[in-house]
Amino acid sequence: MAAFPSLAAPGSVVVSDWHRCKESKEFFSKILQKMRRKNFGLLESPVMPPHAAVDTVDYKVFLTGKSGVGKTSLAARLAGLSVPKVHYETTGIEVSVIYWPVKLRDSGRVLFFRLQLWDCGDNASRRFDHLLPSCKEQVDAVLFLFSFTDRTSFDDLSNQITKWTEPSVCHIVKVVVGTKYDLFMHCDVTERDVQDFQETWRLPLLRVGGEVSEGLGDVAPVLNCLAEQLWHQDCIAAGSTCRQTREKTVTLI
């Protein structure tokens, strides 16, 4: 689609599976605590020793999709928390902050991505007008969610994505996530459907589902993909406006 920025090919910008490399340990250890993901308050952030300090880049990511599709679950999963068993509607906006170390392929430079995931309850967003504008304000990426067990959520994707193709928002990174991939018995969306969709839209599409596992293997593909597209988009933006660099480094304490 012409309305979209160019895509970075998977693994072309960031080192995929970097979390498996030995040299990444000292960085990933900063986001772990007793083998589990560390929960950071807003006053905290991963702190590297002075000689190994790296920059942190901050991005706002908006999660959208119909009620029950799994937005809150995805945010929890990416933050390393347990996924809620029952569906309780989110009745407002909840923001989760996730730190993720990334190694850039070209320069070998390491960065901490600080991803703010903005999760807004679908029904709440209809009841209260001010929620969506707040989510969309200065957003860097949108995650479009559909559920493999809910055909209508998949069919609605095109509508959703079209809303983000206008010139003012077309530069925003777009990634599609299919949830409940583990419930293959109830699968309502075929691989063929997914292929057709990808040919039309040419957006990265990721599949998630199942119990949250211990390691980082589950979340790495999603977080690396997001980081890759975000960084790629930033480089394009910096190129076109020459000197625009991302000054979003966060205050540390």
Binding site: N39, L42, T72, T91, G92, V95, Q116, R127, F128
Partner: peptide, 26 residues
């Protein structure tokens, strides 16, 4: 909200006694 592990929230709330018909933001 705190138990959900999120970092921040913007929740519309009505106050059952002080403002039952106009929502505020928590």
């Amino acid at each position: 909200l705190s138990a959900s592990g999120s970092s921040s929230c913007d929740y519309p709330v009505f106050l059952p006694h002080g403002s039952p018909t106009v929502a505020h933001r928590l």
